[in-house]
Computed example of a mutant assay.
Amino acid sequence: MDRRTVLRATVIGAGTAAFSGSLWSAAFAAPAQPGPSPYGGLRAADANGVQLPAGFTSRIVARSRQAVAGYTWHDAPDGGACFVTGAGWVYVSNSEISATGGASALRFNADGSIASAYRILANTNRNCAGGATPWGTWLSCEEADLGYVYETYPLGGTAAVRRPAMGRFTHEAAAADPDRRVIYLTEDETNGCFYRFRPTTWGNLSAGTLEVLVAGSATSGPVSWAPVPDPDGSPTRTRSQVSGAKRFNGGEGCYYADGVCWFTTKGDNRVWAYDAVNQRIDLAYDDSLVTGTAPLTGVDNITGSGSGDLFVAEDGGNMEINIITPAGVVAPFIRLSGQSGSEITGPAFSPDGTRLYFSSQRGTSGSSSGGITYEVRGPFRS
């Protein structure tokens, strides 16, 4: 297997690194390996059943079917993101429920207290993950055959809009690349593809071109993009329309920063890095290439921090969020106890980077009605 990494010291323009900023600025020779966390080991579980490094604390901000700020929080909380609003912020969360899914929002005051909670999308199908846009909307994606992307408004007061131009397929996550003015999309199928949507006008998702990544069978190397002839996906599914489209085993989370789109595949426990500057892909993590016991399995949702650290949630595994550092070290950062029948979803940082939100989709009950949404505070690296 080709173990070459995307994290090369390529230089473009007037001395600007291809992977600018702090994110993965140091190259390493192979996919991430287990090592000591920069935050230290995990302590015993706290009163909320959360194991954290020293200096970090947790609180529960919402539970499925229970009132939060007078609003009944949704079942099966999944993908999420944070948005600035006035002096506070909003955390949005999808509901992965068939036919009656959608998304809800928690609005926080500047001191972190909860100001309100409300619905921003209703009666859609298995809203799994999604992604934030630079113009402040949340793309809620349906993980269903011929599913849609819905553009929603985290601050409320505006009706969600279906965006069929972004393709109909088993959507999972989305990540906006403002530098190339495209939105990357993952597909949760065992033979799924990796897509990008190129809006006709940046900031307007009503029209544009859906493209699919084309490459050989190797895990690393150059790639190209080809238009999908029929984004509607019927009668021929989008993943079957372009010869040479690269297959990915169960596309999940998707996160863009500093010229790289990171995306995960749960079928083979991999974290991929798409170098958007040089148009190539490589592996950032693969549990089959780990020396010893792999700390990260059930690879699922992904986000990043200002320090360049990636935070990858597990669907199953040890019910952890693992950190992958720019130095190529992978280690547990959060572990939930007594929730083996659940999955961790929706990791997202508050705008100031001091709070991490996430959910346990089925909580301790193992049922979609038992979802729990958490906040973790502490000295995150910046």
Rank of each mutant, 00 (worst) to 15 (best):
D315T: 06
R196A: 07
A62F: 00
A160M: 10
T152P: 08
G316Y: 00
S243K: 12
I12F: 02
Y256H: 08
R162H: 03
P332Y: 04
A26I: 15
F248Y: 05
G328R: 04
Y195D: 04
D286Q: 05
A294Y: 00
F194W: 04
V329C: 06
Y357P: 00
S93Y: 05
R126Q: 06
A218H: 00
F358S: 10
A62D: 00
V228W: 02
S342K: 07
A76D: 11
A76G: 13
I97L: 14
N94D: 15
G15D: 07
D78F: 04
L205W: 11
W225M: 01
T264L: 07
L356Y: 03
D309P: 09
L7V: 14
V299M: 08
S365C: 07
N322P: 05
A14V: 13
S365L: 12
G130E: 10
A273T: 13
D230M: 13
G250R: 10
G253Y: 06
G49S: 01
G35T: 12
A173K: 05
R8C: 10
G366S: 14
V92Q: 14
H74K: 09
T373L: 04
Q361E: 15
D111S: 10
P53H: 08
S359D: 03
S305L: 05
G101A: 13
M319N: 15
A284K: 04
G131Q: 01
R3L: 10
V50S: 06
G130R: 08
V376C: 01
S240V: 12
N191M: 12
G41S: 14
P231A: 14
T325W: 02
A176F: 14
Y285Q: 01
G86K: 03
N109T: 07
S206M: 05
E189Q: 09
S288E: 02
Y255G: 06
A276N: 11
I321D: 06
G308H: 01
S104F: 05
D282K: 08
V376W: 01
I344M: 00
S224R: 13
F19A: 14
S369D: 13
Q51G: 03
N249T: 13
T209C: 08
V214G: 02
G371T: 11
A14D: 13
G353E: 06
L210W: 02
G316V: 08
I120K: 06
A27C: 11
S22F: 12
D111T: 07
Y118G: 14
P235K: 11
V90F: 00
A87T: 15
Q51V: 08
R270W: 03
L106W: 09
T297Q: 03
Y118K: 12
K246A: 00
F311I: 05
P199L: 05
V68H: 09
I302C: 00
F19S: 13
S220Y: 03
N249C: 13
A122R: 04
P235G: 08
T264H: 02
V376H: 01
E172T: 01
A122Y: 03
V149Q: 02
D232M: 08
N94M: 12
E252Y: 10
G308C: 09
R180L: 11
S217E: 10
W24F: 15
A30G: 14
L7M: 13
C82K: 00
G259S: 01
P199G: 06
G378Q: 02
W202R: 09
R107S: 10
